[in-house]
Amino acid sequence: MSAEIADEQEILSGEAVAIDVQPVGFVLRAAGALIDMLFGFAVFTGFILVQVWLLTLGVLDEHTARILSIWAAVVSFLVLPITVEMATRGRSLGKLAVGGRIVRIDGGAITFRHTFIRALLGVLEIYITVGGIAVITGALTARSQRLGDLVAGTYSQRVRTPHLVQQEPVLPPSLTGWATVADVARMPDRLARRISQFLVNADRLSPAARLSVGRELAAEAAPFISPVPDAGPEEMLRAVTVLRRERERRALTLSDDRAEHLSRTRIRV
């Protein structure tokens, strides 16, 4: 699918649908690159230490050690970045730390060609110049692209953090007995939604606002609750919400059971 860049944070697809994307900022991009660079140097240093140890044991001669040093550099600074990015689909240790992922300009997943170009030029702009060229190009481009990104046609896209799953309210233990005889079926759906929204956002309110809103909602809900429990406003609202959700779940379960029973009956007929 072809795509055109609408602006710095938006991609326009072939169907003219704007997709909101955000590139990783320059500071975070530099921090991620520094982590990757230190990791590469650490792996290379590990190879060299092993070679020195083998030299002291007489297992290797100096000529073989020099050849292995070249191979160690190739593996640490070229093969390793390619392998990691291909295995993680555009992520590396540094990108995981800053919440980024390498993607194509059109937002698609990178291939081996993109990764190879980035890693090959990364040897020059990151390791040989100690990040000098990468810093200059990153500071001058809109998406903080280094030289390898410009040639390969890629950039680092911010990976959005998934929203945390909201916890459902729990029935207060003091109202367990009341819940067995309570009737909340007459409560309007609009009021029930307002109560649910209040319970979700209650921790973000100031204590005074939380108490005030809780009392108002409890007073509105009281005429639709039978019997009204002897509890605080927020405890009562939590108990009512739990009972309504349990009633709705039971209704859905019964509906599914009826539908399944009818389908089985038709099959038998």
Rank of each mutant, 00 (worst) to 15 (best):
residue 24 V to M: 05
residue 24 V to K: 06
residue 24 V to W: 06
residue 25 G to Q: 06
residue 28 L to P: 09
residue 29 R to T: 13
residue 29 R to E: 11
residue 30 A to I: 09
residue 31 A to T: 12
residue 31 A to C: 13
residue 32 G to K: 08
residue 33 A to L: 15
residue 34 L to M: 14
residue 35 I to M: 10
residue 35 I to P: 04
residue 35 I to E: 05
residue 36 D to T: 12
residue 38 L to H: 10
residue 39 F to A: 15
residue 44 F to S: 11
residue 44 F to D: 10
residue 46 G to M: 11
residue 46 G to L: 14
residue 47 F to M: 13
residue 48 I to Q: 15
residue 50 V to F: 14
residue 50 V to M: 15
residue 51 Q to G: 13
residue 52 V to L: 13
residue 52 V to K: 08
residue 53 W to S: 15
residue 54 L to V: 07
residue 54 L to R: 07
residue 55 L to P: 06
residue 55 L to S: 13
residue 56 T to V: 10
residue 57 L to P: 05
residue 57 L to W: 10
residue 57 L to Q: 15
residue 58 G to R: 05
residue 59 V to K: 08
residue 59 V to E: 11
residue 60 L to Q: 03
residue 62 E to M: 09
residue 62 E to N: 08
residue 65 A to I: 02
residue 65 A to P: 02
residue 66 R to T: 06
residue 67 I to P: 00
residue 67 I to H: 02
residue 68 L to S: 01
residue 69 S to P: 01
residue 69 S to C: 01
residue 70 I to Q: 00
residue 70 I to M: 05
residue 71 W to H: 00
residue 72 A to Y: 03
residue 72 A to C: 01
residue 72 A to E: 03
residue 73 A to N: 00
residue 74 V to E: 00
residue 74 V to P: 00
residue 75 V to K: 00
residue 75 V to R: 00
residue 76 S to C: 02
residue 77 F to I: 03
residue 78 L to N: 00
residue 78 L to F: 11
residue 80 L to Q: 05
residue 80 L to D: 00
residue 81 P to S: 01
residue 81 P to T: 01
residue 82 I to K: 01
residue 82 I to W: 00
residue 83 T to A: 12
residue 86 M to K: 00
residue 87 A to Y: 01
residue 88 T to C: 05
residue 88 T to A: 07
residue 88 T to M: 10
residue 90 G to D: 03
residue 91 R to L: 02
residue 93 L to V: 11
residue 93 L to W: 09
residue 94 G to Q: 09
residue 96 L to M: 12
residue 97 A to H: 06
residue 100 G to D: 07
residue 100 G to K: 11
residue 101 R to S: 07
residue 101 R to W: 09
residue 102 I to V: 15
residue 103 V to N: 08
residue 103 V to H: 06
residue 104 R to H: 05
residue 104 R to E: 12
residue 104 R to G: 08
residue 106 D to Q: 09
residue 107 G to F: 09
residue 107 G to P: 08
residue 108 G to L: 10
residue 108 G to H: 11
residue 108 G to I: 03
residue 109 A to N: 12
residue 109 A to Y: 08
residue 111 T to W: 04
residue 113 R to T: 12
residue 114 H to C: 07
residue 115 T to H: 00
residue 115 T to K: 06
residue 116 F to E: 03
residue 117 I to S: 03
residue 117 I to W: 08
residue 118 R to T: 05
residue 118 R to Q: 03
residue 119 A to E: 07
residue 119 A to M: 07
residue 122 G to L: 05
residue 122 G to Q: 05
residue 123 V to Q: 05
residue 124 L to P: 02
residue 125 E to L: 07
residue 126 I to V: 14
residue 126 I to F: 08
residue 126 I to H: 04
residue 128 I to Q: 02
residue 130 V to D: 04
residue 130 V to A: 12
residue 131 G to V: 04
residue 131 G to D: 04
residue 134 A to V: 02
